[in-house]
């Protein structure tokens, strides 16, 4: 991930000097995950070196934040919200449908590695519930029909 260093250096321009390395940790992790899909041991060693930070601090952070992953997942990450407003608008039916259609429950990946399903908490988008993220994009006001149409597009 050394090729990202110029990008990381650019981030420093608008940051205060104190605590500089710490404040870069999450942005660097996000960027690496975007590149590789997850955070590899190599990345931890690289960041520990680049940010002059004990590797354990990086591992601690990684274990805390649900968006950061230590292992690869399916090509399409379906993150369906199961908090109250989405549940009031039918997200349970969508979970059932996904189980029927893809054979996976939250936390599982299809054997062909295409889909990983996660049940997530409120995505801050309840006005257009039910809501699901596919990779980084929100899909709102889902129905069984629109969900099916989305699945057909994902290959």
């Amino acid at each position: 991930m050394k090729h990202l260093i110029p990008e990381f250096e650019a981030l420093k321009q608008r940051l205060p000097l104190e605590g500089l390395n710490g404040v870069l940790l999450l942005p660097c992790l996000h960027r690496i995950q975007q590149e590789r899909g997850y955070i590899h041991d190599e990345d931890i060693a690289f960041l520990a070196d680049y940010l002059a930070m004990p590797a354990i601090q990086i591992i601690e952070a990684l274990s805390f934040y649900t968006m950061l992953r230590r292992a690869p997942i399916g090509r399409w990450h379906l993150q369906l919200c199961h908090n109250l407003p989405c549940a009031l608008c039918g997200s349970d039916n969508l979970f059932d449908y996904l189980h029927e259609r893809l054979g996976i429950r939250p936390g599982e990946t299809t054997p062909d590695g295409r889909f990983t399903l996660s049940a997530v908490e409120c995505l801050g988008c309840c006005g257009t519930a039910p809501v699901m993220m596919i990779n980084e994009t929100y899909h709102e006001q889902l129905t069984l029909e629109s969900l099916e149409a989305l699945l057909k597009e994902l290959n």
């Binding site: 981030l11 940051l15 605590g19 390395n21 710490g22 404040v23 996000h30 601090q57 805390f64 649900t66």
Partner: peptide
């Protein structure tokens, strides 16, 4: 004055102001 947009990483408790600051500092929230 400078401003930086900082993305959280999926943690409700990081909305709590002091947890948020720990998160900014590169620690657990």
């Amino acid at each position: 004055c400078d401003v930086v947009i900082f993305r959280g990483a999926g943690s409700y408790v990081c909305g709590e102001a002091s947890a948020l600051l720990n998160s900014l500092e590169g620690k657990r929230g």
